[in-house]
Design a protein around this nucleic acid. Structure first.
Lengths: 209, 209
DNA sequence: AAAAGAATAGGAGAAATCTCACAGGACAAG
DNA sequence: CTTGTCCTGTGAGATTTCTCCTATTCTTTT
């Protein structure tokens, strides 16, 4: 297949195709399970997934919402994680899967791939630390304003509140509470199953902190 | 110098010494300033520093407490960060500084170095995501218990509360409040300028969540 | 169509956390 | 020795966020 060849030449110095396999996961299906120790690199080429972990007190923390194109299983390849996370498809997900156990020697010697990997992990790490510090420094009001702007199409916001709450790391109840506040303040309006942004400038002011 | 040669052979395939320089920073001195864009890799060989960022609302978030041996400036080398962070020496800090701008071509082609870098960044990223999820899932009580155990020597805890509060991402007032609770519950006792751990098992139970 | 399971919505009260204000002690600079 | 600055410690009240509970709607499965 042509696309695969072009892609593979862009990321690898060696011919990765012998170690490559295509896989598709249905919505809700598990790509990695908590506690498993995968020996593969998953290149997400289509679809969205979620990465989360469950704590001893039962709470669930959503770490990331990978969307194509993204890479899953890199942390496990590098063996930096004692407890692996749970990765679950949200929509139908297409992957190119590299059997990293079998070609680890080539990967470790491949500067093209390693440079890509460094950049990839570093970018994700930077995003995470931004999230971490913003969560420490601002209440939900500010984060939600930013999220509404980011997740809306035009003036129309229609995300699942359950997912949004997990993404923002806050209880479902509290998310609703702050949404209701926004409504009272005339920033948004409910229109059946979706929300409409009425005062974009107001939200932007909040989002800026 | 012998140590440098051994170290350099361990991390690099090429001879990095022409690009290398030793530097020492005094306590309180800035290694990187907010907004600067460094072109160097700083290998911390002795000492402790702190990495933080200041938000628009004036709050300060402490991202990390690098301690020797550690690496600073990698994210900037990879150009993944729009706003650079502030890095400040806590104790006297010794560095081996690599002029990464001048030897970037060699670095990009060096699988030994890139493999090290991947592992380093991945490890830090894993630590950060653990912190992120724990902060979302547990109140300060649990995190503080873990921190007391981690930061004490023997049964003796003597950290600056101002620093601890920033590290835990919580207000100074609230930190003191929870410390006072611990005292009431007989977990710790104040002894002049330091705190003594009375009930290690109790703290461990809290820390485990 | 009926039943089961999510997602939505909100009330009430409690817990966690923050801001502000104040006061005393430690320590360095003048 | 005095002054300024930083760390410590605490009170009071406000805000943010959580838990638990109860309905209603919407989807999916049977």
């Amino acid at each position: 297949m042509d696309r695969i060849e072009a892609w593979s030449r862009e990321l690898f110095s060696f011919d990765v195709r012998p170690f490559l396999e295509e896989r598709v996961f249905a919505p809700g299906e598990f790509i990695l399970r908590e506690g498993s120790f995968p020996q593969h690199l998953y290149f997400l080429t289509q679809g969205r997934a979620k990465i989360y972990t469950t704590h001893k007190n039962g709470k669930v923390s959503l770490l990331n919402f990978p969307a194509a194109p993204d890479l899953i299983g890199d942390m496990e390849l590098l063996e930096v994680r004692r407890e692996s996370l749970c990765v679950q498809a949200l929509t139908r997900c297409h992957f190119w899967v590299v059997d990293s156990r079998r070609c680890l020697p080539q990967l470790r010697e491949d500067p093209k791939f390693l440079w890509f990997l460094c950049n990839h992990i570093a970018r994700r790490s930077a995003r995470q630390s931004t999230v971490l510090t913003i969560q420490q420094a601002y209440p939900l009001k500010n984060q939600l304003a930013a999220f509404l702007l980011m997740a809306s199409e035009g003036d129309c916001y229609r995300q699942r509140h359950t997912e949004a709450a997990e993404y923002l790391g806050v209880s479902y109840r509290h998310l609703l509470y702050v949404l209701a506040q926004f409504r009272k303040e005339g920033l948004i309006r409910r229109e059946g199953p979706e929300y409409r942004i009425l005062d974009r400038a107001g939200l932007e002011a909040l989002a800026a902190g």
